[in-house]
Design a protein around this nucleic acid. Sequence first.
DNA 1: GTGAAAGCGCTAACAA
DNA 2: TTGTTAGCGCTTTCAC
Lengths: 339, 339
Amino acid sequence: MVTLKQLAKELNVSISTVSKALNNSEEIGEETVRRVKELAELYNYTPNKVALSLKQNRTKTIGVIIPDILNHFLAKVLFGIEREATQRGYNIMTCISNESLEKEKKALEVLANGSVDGFILCVAEETQIKNEVNHFKKTMSQGLPIVMFDRVAHDVFCDKVIVDDFDATYSATKRLLSENRKKIAFFSSIDDLSVGKLREHGYKKAILEDANQDILLLKVKKEDDYQEKIEAFFKANKNIDGVLAADSASGIIAVNTALHLGLRVPEDISVIGFASQSVSQHSIPKLTTIRQHAKQIGASAADLLIKRLEKRHDEELEFKTTIVKTSLVNNQSTLNKII
Amino acid sequence: MVTLKQLAKELNVSISTVSKALNNSEEIGEETVRRVKELAELYNYTPNKVALSLKQNRTKTIGVIIPDILNHFLAKVLFGIEREATQRGYNIMTCISNESLEKEKKALEVLANGSVDGFILCVAEETQIKNEVNHFKKTMSQGLPIVMFDRVAHDVFCDKVIVDDFDATYSATKRLLSENRKKIAFFSSIDDLSVGKLREHGYKKAILEDANQDILLLKVKKEDDYQEKIEAFFKANKNIDGVLAADSASGIIAVNTALHLGLRVPEDISVIGFASQSVSQHSIPKLTTIRQHAKQIGASAADLLIKRLEKRHDEELEFKTTIVKTSLVNNQSTLNKII
DNA sequence: GTGAAAGCGCTAACAA
DNA sequence: TTGTTAGCGCTTTCAC
């Protein structure tokens, strides 16, 4: 990499003259500016990012901590973050916590040494289970803002971007009820997560308060064979005519299992799941899905953080919680709406 | 962040003493070392990463350029890269090229200003179509090593990690032939990619040279409705009894479509696809899949790059191409092997 | 055993 | 209009 020093030497001017010329300072003569810019162009000069960061005490880099990059929703949020950040001149450093509290702490520490200006993160499962928040507070007290998305720690005051999980499953369940379904089950492999709990509550509210039916839960563990579990559940609970699936896999597998058992979808049984567009094609009929608008969640999170990073120092900025509404994409695993 | 300066002031010693004490230099007295370390501990001192980078002229950061983070295979490679890098004390800056040559160039430029010590990347689709390689060469000539994985540019001399795509589809096709299949089709939505071409060649070789059957290709575009296309293809080409799917979606959809059309899988038709473990569960029977060991690909790529970054300056290191062998996971969408 | 000083590449206040 | 200087935080050589 060519430096200001080298340009200065070659042009027989001082370093600061070169610097000012390149930054279009009014101070420098037209002719000099021209000469400097020409040589800079020729040598493909770009300011050294590290030196700039040191000088300006900010890196224009955002630390992103994701629990699981293989989760399609989280990957999509990352995509949204990256796009928004890039557009606004920020880079992202990505760490994967693997749902582990220890790794999450480590990632915060490693990046809080001047590498990044702030964090966007989704709280790890273990962290949520243990309800640990000190590492977040500590990081923020060091002057590094945090934006949490999807799974958030309620006891931490920071910007947040969340999904209306409760409303989403509440309305989806009502949707199944409007098809006159009498025995609606709820499948989940994420009942340890804050969002998993919210989704379950939405279902329960609709079932108990609006329909006076019984709750019917299937909780699957990540290491289970979903197909086996779901098939066994269908066999143990006859006449299930509706399924609401809280995670991305069990909706598709529910449809395929129902078909496998000779049921007609959606005539005999109606299924709604949380899934991406691509995964919703993995069943015939295609799965009716709750879309979370992951990209927009990512973009909003990046926007909130960058706004905070770029506010004037004297300016106060209240912590904000943005709710990104889900939408229901009607495919063929449900009937046309009746009510 | 507390700095050496502040510690020095508080301890009434010089900055260099503090620095040396913290770095366990022999020069400094035992007692001083103790005092310094105590205060550093108390204030939670960590060296400023940016200052270190500037001083040492290396960032311990790897730039990763991924064409599509929503592609499960690529996300998994990223996972492997991140893990290996973290273990070895490196951070990663992630950019997404979105399969665009322009963005790929931009990402290289943006990060080649001192932000990273080297790159790991998978060539964008547009770049492969236009066969453009100058931006890679330019980056390398600036002293930034590149490691390419999966889709590589053959005209660029650098470290590479690739999959044995040709062998994988060749053997998979032979596997179908060994089940005595007489009409084997090849589904692909990635025939623009280097790996897509290799996979097609592997299939063709087995069909033409080993079986003397006819080639039967279905090429799907990303924006197509896969279900429609595949169903139409099955209807237009009766008696297909084997499918080899080159991308991650069409295998699953092939199984589900076959079932939907009343065929028995694997009795009437046998299907093999490229897919992850989780996606292979999206059909009943589960899809027999070619596993690419994405995590290991990522880990190998990171290893190659870090080795190069950490070699002594006088040391020569030849460019290396690592081939990560695929393996076939036998699920129930194929018969038990006959031959 | 400890400290002063230089320097990594850059910007900006101040001097000329 | 241009140059000198200080300083961001750190390591390291060289004096003391």
